[in-house]
């Protein structure tokens, strides 16, 4: 009966994962391996193709967009225009990239667009967290703490399937941006993605599927060692159950990968350093880029994080 309960939990979290995350691993890998035929992503590899990429997006309907979803975020922080994700605004943000625009501004605006998508992704992760049995029964302050400390780790894991050694899918899989192009941006923008590529290429060799990912993400959210938690015991109890479910899932789904569970536990530790470095880089950006506006939701999450 216990194993049956753990399997039921795995199925529940997998359904929630499919419901709340718009682009999961299976379709992503199909896009990256060129199995989507006519729907191949537009490739951005230099400034010219960056501008063409915007045109490409403006000509296509953005998938997975629901007005209801975007309105939650806009209402949440005073309706800043940058959080709108509708096709009227395009993937890059509020206006078109003009040929005369200084390169500095291009990088900054691209960064702002990444922030918009990240904020939307935080909302998706929040909904997923709320679907974890017992999560919404936790002290509300602890729910906030778990999300504050867990959400960037979750986003990095969700980003991994979008990446390969040569680049990353963005804009819901409609664009492939090359790693070399990202490395060619001016400092410190060029330093932002490289650590994520290094992590993701290794993480992808573990070959988790979407049902494994759902359980792993839930484990990342339910960590009893986040700073400032008020009531650790119920969180640890929840995490223990999800960890057992993950262990069983991996045994059944990857019978030949004997150390997979242990490797995933190690990845949980590795992620903390990547997040720390990321937050420090954002703090550096805030100091050096006078025109930069950090999204209010991301600001909340990163303030006093590490």
């Amino acid at each position: 009966p216990e194993a049956a309960d753990l399997r039921a939990l795995a199925r529940h979290l997998f359904r929630a994962y499919l419901k709340y995350f718009p682009l999961t691993k299976q379709p992503t890998r199909a896009i990256l391996s060129g199995k989507t035929g006519d729907n191949a992503p537009c490739v951005i590899h230099d400034m010219k193709s960056l501008m063409e990429g915007e045109q490409f997006i403006n000509c296509r309907q953005m998938p997975f967009q629901e007005q209801q979803q975007t309105s939650v975020l806009t209402a949440a922080h005073g309706g800043l225009t940058e959080v709108h994700m509708g096709s009227d605004y395009g993937v890059w943000g509020m206006t078109s990239i003009s040929g005369q625009e200084p390169q500095n501004a291009v990088e900054l605006r691209f960064f702002q667009s990444c922030q918009s998508r990240s904020a939307e992704a935080v909302r998706e992760v929040t909904e997923f967290a709320k679907s974890i049995p017992g999560f919404t029964d936790l002290d509300l302050n602890d729910q906030v703490t778990l999300l504050k400390y867990g959400v960037i780790e979750v986003l990095i894991i969700m980003m991994s399937p979008l990446m390969n050694k040569d680049g990353t899918l963005i804009s819901y899989g409609q664009i492939f941006m090359t790693r070399e192009f990202l490395k060619s941006l001016r400092k410190p923008f060029c330093q932002m993605m490289e650590p994520k590529f290094e992590f993701s290429v290794k993480f992808n060799t573990l070959e988790l599927d979407d049902s494994d990912m759902a359980l792993f993400l839930a484990c990342l959210i339910l960590r009893g060692d986040r700073p400032g938690l008020l009531n650790v015991k119920p969180i640890e109890k929840l995490q223990e159950t999800v960890l057992h479910s993950l262990e069983l899932q991996l045994k059944l789904n990857h019978p030949d990968s004997l150390q997979l569970f242990a490797k995933l536990l190690q990845k949980m530790t590795d992620l903390r350093q990547i997040v720390t470095d990321h937050v420090h880089l954002i703090q550096l950006l805030k100091k050096t880029e006078v025109d930069m506006c950090l999204h209010p939701l991301l600001q909340e999450i990163m303030k006093d994080l590490y």
């Binding site: 939650v72 949440a76 909904e127 729910q143 504050k148 909340e300």
Partner: peptide, 21 residues
């Protein structure tokens, strides 16, 4: 903590996307 994280708090409390799996 809730005061310092108003948007996160609101996302946690909002009921526009009920978990109706």
């Amino acid at each position: 903590l809730k005061e310092k994280h108003k948007i996160l708090h609101q996302l946690l409390q909002n009921s526009t996307s009920p978990v109706d799996l």
